[in-house]
């Protein structure tokens, strides 16, 4: 079985790495893939909360690399989808509790069982980042349409390229198409012009993300969330399907208008 190991990173904090990891992972599991989400943000773990699995954690990644438990014991099964697992970060340790070498070995173990290994990278460019990219073959960079986020993404892409990642791909998160259209926010072309890398997907700003995070239910499981739909597209592109990239244009088809009338669409 050929496994894909994808690290989701950004440099800057708060741009939606964890949300992106949770949603892409869940969307892949919804397509019937065998997926593990690997939280490498040791000391500041969040992925378990976003997935709604915080009460089920017994062992974590530090326990696994220190042989305090078996890998199977630390893999927390998702409550909704068969084939979706979380390997949580430790909350009480620090980034240095795991080395890049240990991370590589761990991922090699996971490769035997999973088709997709998504690594949620911490913010920053220090050891946490080096751990997260250690075992990955591909990288996805998340950026929001803000100059600070784009600069950090540029920095991260440079570091990824220097570490041998040939073509990191970009997800633009929290795009407000109306503001971009007015020229009050960077639009997709502005960001691509600066970063000059391939676009994997665009996720619109969506209030439902806040709700879904609080509930511990990734937005892809919701049928009307716009962000959820965008993440489902990203997941399909990752599996190699030729899906058009969402560009922020409102579709105002008759069906959509009708759905709005009956308050099915947000």
């Amino acid at each position: 079985m050929e496994s894909k190991v994808i690290v989701i990173t950004s440099g800057k904090g708060g741009v939606g790495k964890t949300t992106t990891t949770a949603n892409i992972g869940t969307a892949l599991a919804m397509m019937g893939k065998k997926v593990v989400l690997l939280d490498t943000d040791i000391g500041l773990r969040n992925l378990d909360v976003v997935m709604g699995l915080e009460n089920r954690i017994v062992f974590d990644i530090v326990d696994v690399v220190n042989n305090n438990c078996k890998l199977q014991q630390a893999l927390t099964k998702d409550k909704r989808y068969e084939g979706l697992y979380l390997l949580p970060a430790a909350q009480t340790k620090e980034k240095t509790a795991v080395s890049p070498h240990q991370m590589k070995n761990l991922i090699n173990e996971l490769k035997k069982e999973f088709e997709f290994i998504l690594v949620d990278c911490p913010a920053g460019i220090e050891q946490g980042f080096r751990n997260a990219i250690a075992g990955a073959d591909e990288a996805v960079v998340v950026a929001t349409p803000e100059i600070s986020s784009v600069r950090d993404a540029d920095r991260i892409i440079g570091l990824l390229e220097a570490s041998g990642f040939r073509e990191p791909k970009l997800i633009i998160n929290r795009l407000r198409s109306k503001m971009a259209k007015r020229g009050d926010m960077m639009d997709i072309d502005d960001i691509l012009d600066i970063l000059s890398i391939e676009l994997l997907g665009v996720v619109p700003e969506d209030e439902y993300i806040v709700v879904s995070t609080n509930r511990g239910e990734p937005a892809v499981t919701d049928t009307v969330s716009k962000a959820g739909a965008a993440y489902r597209r990203v997941a399909r592109r990752i599996t190699g399907q030729d899906v058009e990239i969402y560009t922020g244009e409102e579709t105002s088809s008759l069906v959509n208008r009708f759905m709005k009338m009956v308050k099915l669409a947000r």
Partner: peptide, 8 residues
């Protein structure tokens, strides 16, 4: 023959 990125 490449782009020089932020921080490089």
């Amino acid at each position: 023959y490449r782009n020089i990125r932020s921080g490089q």
